[in-house]
Amino acid sequence: MDERVTLRSHLDQVSARSPNVFAIAEVIEAIAAASIELGDLIADGPMAGITGRLGAVNSAGDQQKDIDLAADGMMRRALRAAPVAAIFSEESELPEVINSGAPLCVAIDPLDGSANLENNISVGTIFSIRPCGSDVLSTFFEPGTAQCAAGFVVYGPQTTLVLALNNSVDTFILDRRNREFLLTARGVKIAPNTPEFAINASNRRHWHGPVRAYIDDCLAGTAGNGEADFNMRWIGSLVAETLRILIRGGVFLYPADARPGYREGRLRLIYEAHPMALIMEWAGGAATTGRRRILELAARTPHQRVPLIMGSMRGVGDVAAIHEGTEPMFDNSDAPLFARRGLFR
């Protein structure tokens, strides 16, 4: 973009048009400031005393590293100075009430994918912002449609902020010299039909029928009954996968499968799937479990897991179409009911 638009000036422009955005803008600025600090820490790594050593297991069931705890502390400190009633972090068992009179609640994964750092792969911060209800804690257990903003930061070759606000998805890149985010793309839209998919194919034997049928049809491409030959991408970093879809299109699949601990999916609904689904939909894409729209789901437990299939409208729609008429069971996944149904048959 020719004009230099900072995150702050962008938020000022949005707030001037929509006064109800003022408080949301303050929260976004707080997260952005903390992400600059966190990006520095990630870049310095061992030189800053970050060892990558494992610690306790967090409430979501994942091993914590020292960088996870540092990221959590940075985000909490920033959000405590913003108009936030409660924070719910991946690293905590339950939401923390800060100021019950404040207008907003924030769910956050302070550092998603920290296991990737030892391989120098992009990691990120994911956040969801909701209007605070009369019962502060119950706010986090409303459907994803209750979100008023969401976003994520990718710590990679560039530090990139993707922001869903006011029904628009915009991207910003950190100007490291001036330590401020600059607008690089306004009103991002996902390509409606891109022949590209991302999935961990090593788990194929664990998938249930509809997912296997979809991927098999993609792999068959024009040699089967497909309209195109598909490319496969798999980074193993949720924020990096999502950014790629916003730029290139395609579909990302992290389905439930037959492994212990994966039968309800693996990604967390409140602070991973909900914000990513909002971003997808506001960018013209879609997000589903395969059977239900992600934004319609309300969490039953704080760290509830869920399957996530998101991306281009056509790709997500094709996956959902294959799921129709099939039983949501892992047993008998090779039964004829599943074998008969595919993307092109």
Rank of each mutant, 00 (worst) to 15 (best):
A70F: 12
G265V: 12
N231W: 10
E241S: 10
I199H: 05
G133W: 01
E264G: 09
S15Y: 09
N166D: 10
N116P: 03
A339Q: 08
G261L: 10
L246A: 05
M310G: 06
E96T: 13
A32L: 13
D12A: 15
N20P: 11
A287C: 15
H274K: 13
E180R: 10
L161C: 05
D72Y: 04
E90H: 02
L253T: 00
A201M: 03
G236T: 01
V153P: 05
P110Q: 13
G284K: 04
G250F: 02
R8L: 15
A164T: 10
L69T: 09
W234T: 04
A223V: 10
I235W: 07
G261K: 08
F88H: 03
L38M: 06
R248W: 00
A277D: 02
R179T: 10
G55I: 06
D175R: 06
F127E: 01
N225I: 11
V251D: 11
L54R: 12
M329D: 14
V169M: 09
V106N: 01
G49F: 13
T160K: 05
A240G: 05
A30Q: 04
F330N: 14
A283H: 10
T139F: 00
L165T: 04
R76T: 10
F252H: 08
L165P: 06
G226C: 06
Y271Q: 06
F152D: 04
G52E: 11
A115D: 08
F88G: 01
L54M: 12
G39Q: 04
A287W: 06
E327K: 09
M74H: 08
L11Q: 06
R291Q: 09
L111G: 02
I247E: 11
F230I: 01
D44F: 00
E142N: 08
I67W: 03
S114G: 07
G144I: 03
D2G: 14
H208W: 10
W207N: 03
F127W: 09
P210Y: 01
F230Y: 13
F172Q: 09
I42L: 02
L238N: 02
L137E: 15
T194W: 01
L11D: 15
S128W: 10
T184H: 03
L253I: 11
A43D: 14
N178E: 15
P260T: 07
A191H: 05
N231H: 12
E281P: 04
T194I: 07
S89L: 11
L104M: 08
F88D: 02
L243W: 08
A102D: 01
